[in-house]
Design a protein around this nucleic acid. Structure first.
Lengths: 130, 130
DNA sequence: TGACAATATCTGTCTTGTCAACTACTGCTA
DNA sequence: TAGCAGTAGTTGACAAGACAGATATTGTCA
């Protein structure tokens, strides 16, 4: 728990400083960036998110207000909403993620030996989506 | 991050269900329980926790409102506040921590081999207070 | 086809934690 | 011993997440 909170806090501060966005934004933008056409349903976004399973509506509100994504109607299902990353969002994401990877490397990965890195990954992997 | 959020959420729900207190309460009560006379300064309480000063003030407010601890003046330093665990708090803590250990065992420890357990502990230990 | 359960998302409201500013007190130093 | 920097803890304003319930739409089945 200490490791988690310390690393998280550290990289989040870094991210805000150099890219001006919180980690939750990067998470959302990353999911969209990796999706075909940079587009996902709200529901898919919720399922894949590392954070916020409950507050996705409002998180998307905030990212949208920052101009990094936009909502669109889903053709054929008037309940549904698509979320699409904007060119602005793509640009921000690409720049931010490079720096963020370096932050994680510095705050976390570089402090583990390769053997430790692998051991931790293997041990914790099983918790992924289950 | 997935492992952390999943395990944390799981054991917190368990704790609330069987003991009616959030994990943060257990953390504070544990530190007091382990301290000589069941007593610590606000500052000591804060130092090893993941909270800011103001966060701790409010957490202690809530635990105090639940009757599990009380504030006392520090003799010789009128700025200071001691926090003391109450008999009620001790009782709750002892009962809750036993079950909590079982929860953690079930949700986390039991899913790792002994070798993995040790490897993770060794790899993450260095983040403790540094 | 009409009733009703299920799905997709949003909104209201409460809780919790952060930040910055504030009060009160202590102890150094000139 | 007066001034002042440092320490201890609290408070107000605010941001974000949790939870429950609302709203609109779709699909199923008698």
């Amino acid at each position: 728990m200490f490791a988690h909170s310390q690393v998280l806090h550290s990289v989040e501060q870094d991210l805000k400083r150099h890219s001006g966005i919180p980690l939750a934004f990067l998470d959302v933008l990353g999911r969209l960036y990796d999706a075909p056409d940079g587009r996902l349903r709200m529901q898919e976004l919720q399922q894949r998110s590392l954070f916020t399973h409950s507050g996705m509506t409002r998180l998307v509100d905030r990212v949208e207000a920052a101009g990094l994504l936009r909502r669109e109607q889903v053709p054929g299902d008037r309940r549904g909403v698509s979320v699409v990353i904007t060119p602005e969002g793509t640009k921000h994401y690409k720049e931010a993620i490079v720096r963020h990877r370096a932050d994680v490397e510095r705050a976390f990965a570089s402090r583990l030996t390769p053997a430790q890195h692998e051991a931790v990954a293997k041990a914790l992997w099983q918790f992924w989506h289950e």
